[in-house]
């Protein structure tokens, strides 16, 4: 096997096994990303998108199957030990930041993914300067508010901060879980634009979950559609360029989704 940035091999996860609520969330799902791939994950509710991201980040242990990052088996590796490779931005802006801590402290926490915490002073002058430069690229004025508690920021500002934190340290794998879905359209556009610039500049291997078909068409190098815990289709290259919102929506299995997404 050639070395991939990510291999998910026959991943299986069943919720509430043996009960009436039993649900197979991942049904022997397999997926590979080459380094630099930017996969857009689409699929109806319950298709297994979030479960798959949770399995990749380590938040959810698999029943069976494997997760390999850069060829290294991390199936049994805990979230904090995978953090060196994987960065994630959640849909909920509250989830990706430590609210009671300052912007600078949050930036430092992100840095700890790459270098484990030591007994040295945390916020040195050099670090503050670096954080100021990184945040200035967002053009949100966060660079002048390093000592502000994150709880005082708006959802959009918090999500932008989460993004800067996630891409700092150039993770091997960036997971974006509908990270603009909770934002107003203008803020969502700013965060999405910042995302694309960062992914492009740093050539990050990325998986982005979205319900926005236009985004799936406009961005990324692959469209990966999940259905019932499996990859239903994987479109890239010329085929991806030919996709339209309607052609994607037509692939959704359920009628209700047609109505929702086609509208």
């Amino acid at each position: 096997m050639t070395e991939h940035a990510l291999n998910v091999i026959a991943a299986r996860k069943t919720f509430f096994p043996g009960t009436a609520d039993e649900k197979i969330a991942l049904n022997d799902l397999s997926l590979s990303l080459a380094a630099g791939d930017f996969g857009i994950i689409i699929g109806s509710n319950g298709a297994g998108k979030s479960t798959m991201l949770n399995a990749i980040s380590g938040a959810l242990p698999l029943d069976s199957g494997q997760v390999l990052i850069n060829g290294q088996d991390v199936t049994r590796t805990s979230v904090d030990r995978r953090a060196k490779h994987v960065a994630r931005v959640f849909q909920d802006p509250m989830k990706g930041t430590a609210a009671s801590m300052t912007i600078a402290e949050n930036m430092l926490l992100a840095e700890m993914r790459q270098s484990p915490a030591t007994l040295h002073k945390g916020l040195t002058k050099a670090r503050r300067d670096r954080y100021r430069d990184l945040l200035a690229q967002l053009h949100l004025g966060l660079e002048d508010r390093l000592e502000t508690q994150v709880s005082l920021l708006s959802g959009g500002q918090r999500q932008s901060l989460s993004l800067v934190m996630a891409v700092s340290g150039e993770p091997d794998l960036l997971l974006l879980d509908e990270h603009t879905a909770a934002l107003d359209p203008r803020t969502a556009a700013i965060v999405l634009d910042a995302t694309m610039r960062a992914v492009e500049a740093l050539k990050l291997t990325t998986l982005m979950v979205t319900h926005n078909m236009q985004h799936a068409i406009d961005y990324g190098t692959r469209i990966i559609m999940l259905d019932a815990g499996r990859v239903k289709s994987d479109i890239s290259g010329a085929a991806k360029a030919k996709c339209t919102v309607q052609s994607l929506v037509d692939q959704f299995a359920h009628k209700s989704d047609h109505m929702l997404l086609g509208a």
Binding site: S57, V79, D80, A87, K95, A99, M101, R113
Partner: peptide, 14 residues
């Protein structure tokens, strides 16, 4: 302190 502020996020930062 981060663990007290947001345990899930802290874990995701290693």
């Amino acid at each position: 302190r981060a663990v007290g502020s947001n345990p899930d996020m802290s874990e995701a930062q290693g």
